[in-house]
Design a protein around this nucleic acid. Structure first.
Lengths: 342, 342
DNA sequence: TTGTTTTACTAAATCGTTTTAGTACATTTG
DNA sequence: CAAATGTACTAAAACGATTTAGTAAAACAA
């Protein structure tokens, strides 16, 4: 009933040759190792007949390579990350790598635990959206010469490979866009984390505001509440308590979602000339009513750059650590249309 | 510069004892194997000091278990699957399993290729959203006693573990809901695949329509076009060519997205008493305008059932293959409100 | 003829664990 | 006091591949 697993050894025994010969043939070293054409063919035929597949675990043990990458993000169910995951998945598979995804929830302990789980040894490389206190663990990985590429956020005093977008500039431009369209009191919704990408966005917003002689108005939502009713309520109160607000800039996708829910519950907010811009695009933004203006990150390019760097690291081509900064695109839609023409 | 990896052997040598002893201690078998308290402590101390981590690859080779599961879906970037992925990820990690996600794009060749890539041996179990022609490969897995659980769709003549929802009934109820709310000409948007869940939904729709003496109106979109402009156009023409239509039922989330985009471009469609119901809920549905009525699948329960079955399979507890059918919930929102009252 | 090369293979070590089947000594039991 | 049992350990095989360092025979060169 139970089929015996076919191994190199079983092949060797069946053909009455040595495992070495089989291994050479399978690894395409027949010629180089002077295995005769007939022998080679015999092995190949038998392999095909028995549908032999090498045991990758054994290969990994011997070669030290697992052909597995880890893609660690904040939350794999977040649209931004899942879209990116798909892109990375495809690129990795094309190169013969499998990808294990995991969500660290921006929690340092979880991040470290996950990395320990992978044990530095069953994984060939890490693509990581780092949580704030991960610098030590990441340094450790780099020190041990394990390929690591970061994305989305960074550590300013860590010289690592990283792919990010022009957060500051993008936020500046998006804010200016609102200002150009006559919005004057622009609320900025962010979280209380020290994530660099969030700080950069905040900075961009602040610069644009002050460059235009306006006054900023910022709501910082506790990070751990950012996906709950509490954050909806906070946004609601923020808008209610600041009746002079004529627009909101959400600094990331999940905040936008909470915000839109909140503005929606205050039925009229969105209809009355109220401007909205958000970071991170979403397919649904073009079917919302009004459609939502968003800063779109170049997902495909991000994935491409990440994999380019990762593959180089895996090939042990070690350039200096690279810092890639990609450009975002402001997708202008109805939610930010000129105020007086609304 | 390069730190030597600490192994059981290096520990044994350092402490001048045998690897067996170290292994016993590490596996908590000290007592059972009569290792003295002092020895045990000595090993534990050294292990802590050197920060030793076992090489999981070697463990896997020896034990035949990798603690890796594969979660194969149609497209990991699809909201339904990524939300589910997150749930499964969490449950699996809790039990010490890692999860490799992959997208088969509903393509049989890709599915098979992926399964071969995992090689039947570097993975402990598969959770699969099967593509139509995968039955053979799946039978093969089952035959080789590899844990497999299917979800979302099934093969009617394959006796496998499976978790699905009451598609037929759910579609019936959703259709009836529209009918109760005075919609009379309900279009059904589906794809041309033979995916069972889609057929079941179609069936439910048809039954409700005929039970109520109405006439059905179905648009089937070529599967491979289902995420392109073409499908938007098809839906657009469908609505335009059938002016008597007063509502649409989208049979899955990506079709709903295309449909809503399409209806949006036909600016007024959604405002004029036009009913919409869709399969698969989405966070954005409650901020759309009108908010969208949807059949919500119980993601958490699905994940829970999948993992429950998988863990049993992994424990070699072999019950009969189970077929779990979970109930959906119709989330009634504005897009299906009573027609005349609109 | 002797020595060197080339061809066609193979034995055995290795990767880092787990586990079976010991051993040597001490203690208990009948 | 001999046999049985218990304690505290260890040697070595095994998992399934890769790879180094061979060997034996044939071919070629001097």
């Amino acid at each position: 009933m139970k089929k015996k697993q076919v191994s190199i050894k079983s092949i060797a025994t069946a053909l009455n040759i040595s495992v070495t010969t089989v291994s050479f043939v399978l690894n395409g070293k027949a010629e180089e190792k002077h295995i005769s054409k007939e022998m080679t063919q015999k092995v190949l035929d038998y392999v095909k007949k028995t549908n032999y597949r090498p045991n990758q675990i054994a290969q990994s043990l011997r070669t030290g390579k697992s052909k597995i990458l880890v893609f660690m993000v904040e939350d794999i169910s977040n649209n931004f990350f899942s879209k990116l995951a798909r892109i990375i998945e495809d690129m990795a598979y094309e190169k013969g790598y499998k990808v294990i995804f995991c969500s660290n929830e921006n929690d340092d302990n979880k991040s470290e635990e996950l990395i320990r789980l992978f044990n530095f040894r069953m994984v060939d490389g890490f693509i990581i959206v780092p949580s704030p206190g991960m610098q030590g663990v990441i340094e450790q990985l780099i020190e041990e010469n394990i390929p690591v590429v970061l994305l989305d956020r960074y550590f300013s005093d860590l010289n690592s490979n990283i792919v990010i977008v022009n957060n500051d500039e993008a936020a500046y431009n998006a804010t200016e866009h609102l200002i150009k369209n006559q919005y004057r009191k622009i609320g900025f919704i962010t979280t209380d984390t020290s994530q660099t990408q969030m700080l950069d966005r905040l900075n961009g917003y602040k610069r644009a505001i002050s460059d235009n002689g306006l006054v900023s108005s910022i709501l910082s939502i506790p990070y751990n509440e950012s996906s709950t009713q509490i954050s909806r309520d906070l946004i609601y109160s923020f808008v209610a308590d600041n009746p002079e607000l004529d627009s909101l800039f959400f600094s990331t996708n999940y905040l936008a979602l909470r915000g839109l829910e909140s503005l929606k519950s205050d039925c009229d907010a969105l209809k009355k000339n109220f401007g909205v811009v958000t970071f991170d695009d979403n397919e649904f933004f073009s079917i919302c009513n009004p459609t939502i203006t968003a800063v779109a990150q170049p997902l495909y390019e991000i994935g491409e750059e990440l994999m380019k760097i990762m593959l180089n690291l895996l090939k042990k081509i070690d350039d200096k650590p690279q810092k890639i900064i990609l450009n975002t695109e402001l997708k202008i839609r109805e939610s930010s249309k000129p105020k007086q023409l609304f």
